[in-house]
Amino acid sequence: MMNEQRREFIKKTTLGVFAGLGAASGLVPAFSLEKTALPVWDEKPVPGKIRWGMLIDTRKCKEDCQQCIAACHHEHNVPAFKNRREEIRWIWKNSYRNVFPTADIAGVSKEIQNRTFISLCNHCADSPCTQICPTGATFKRWDGIVEIDYHRCIGCRFCMPACPYGSLSFNWEDPRTEIVDPVTAYPTRQQGVVEKCNFCSNRLVKGLLPACVEACPEQALVFGDLNDPRSDIRMLLESNVTMQRKPELGTKPSVFYII
């Protein structure tokens, strides 16, 4: 009798201490929700100071590797709709012809034409999707990221044909039914809103690299500040010949490719 009571007492107090400590440090909330720790960038950002960009070295990208896609889609609870009509994608692979349909194909080798190319939102400096959005739900952030405010999106879908890269996906039905392995650290979307790659703004704020960059086993993806002349990405851009998707449209993409 005494023993049982004591055991109960110990159980409760230790759990309480554990939970209290966890909650106090912000590391182990009583149930694990989004992490609650002050972010790296805790001061109000200066608009236009940073412009995040990505460089994709397609020579290193392995054709049958899907790790960046898996990491991104897992990180952000992207549902896995099987049919093409309802497909939702933040990052995906495509052929040369589809990624660079307007680029000159005559001088390109067979090997390149058969290579797969990673496509994602280009976070254009002059983005047509943010221009056409009637509510400003799709908007250009202070750090160059084109973000969708899922609280504000009315689901009019005008941004979808506005994007020349097909980067936006619409939630034709409730996405929660098709999330394979949900994570608790990032919210889902809901039926009737548009979604796309956010350049991992949720990870950047914690001082982490985007999930796809981190997941790539070949280090084919380089991420950094295009406004900082000493950043890795700027140095690589200066020392390599790179391409952007459909540059003739004047959208000024922040994603570059080394062919």
């Binding site: 440090s25 609650t36 790296v40 001082g207 690299l209 950094g224």
Partner: peptide, 21 residues
């Protein structure tokens, strides 16, 4: 936590704990 991949550029992660009491 700090062992996870970080941005190669500054600023580095300096996650501070909250005081939720």
């Amino acid at each position: 936590r700090n062992g996870e991949a970080e941005l190669s550029q500054k600023p580095l992660a300096r996650v501070s704990a909250i005081d939720s009491t």
